[in-house]
Amino acid sequence: MEKKNKYSIIIPTYNERLNIAIVIYLIFKYLREFDFEIIIVDDGSPDGTQDIIQQLRQVYGEERILLRARPKKLGLGTAYCHGLRYASGDFVVIMDADLSHHPKYLPSFIRKQIETGASIVTGTRYVKNGGVHGWNLLRKLTSRGANVLAQTLLWPGVSDLTGSFRLYKKSVLEDIISSVVSKGYVFQMEMIVRATRKGYHIEEVPITFVDRVFGSSKLGGSEIVEYLKGLIYLLLTT
């Protein structure tokens, strides 16, 4: 019989007390038939995120939910690296805790990977059956503008560059993440562009993105400037 794959789901959190509980509930709801572990990388959230996670571990089992906390807010990119060190699966899923990445799509990521043998399966909002809810016109405009610019200049090979709901073969993630230097927003874009350049097989699945209901976004104001800097950086280095 074929060996069953194990999936490590890495979720970085910062003040996501309510969201993370709901996300974990939904992961267990939709991934019943799969072997998986959840790795939470919490950066010392002052809102008690870690207390909730300890309670959830009592409900779902301490070996299914791992808390790998860090003392203070050190940023998203390094949070993934940190979580990855503890991953015991053959595949790693990276997703946000804020409910904009719905766990019900996880089975389609996994199925897509099994069907195609892809190294990376990335969620895309901009295709049939995908979509976004809760963005105003300005947000849509910047998103489309950024996408057209990146598609024209970078030839990235995927339709949704900045989405961060993805499944990786663990060895592939380890390989790419070590060559990525960007922080914050640009990190996801650099990951997928470097993967394309390295010739990894990347597949896409449609996802819907409902903007966060609880809590607030941790990525602030200067996003557009950061994005343009990132674009230039990727033009010069990839």
């Binding site: 709901i22 509930y25 959830l56 009592q58 409900v59 409910l99 979509g131 976004v132 809760g134």
Partner: peptide
């Protein structure tokens, strides 16, 4: 621009479902 208002409603339902279940488990 693809939008998905029905997804937001579905999510609201599942949020309630999750809250109910987890509260009953003492979370």
């Amino acid at each position: 621009f693809p939008t998905c208002p029905q997804e937001a409603q579905l999510l609201q339902k599942e949020i309630l479902e999750a809250k109910e279940f987890l509260s009953s488990k003492g979370v």
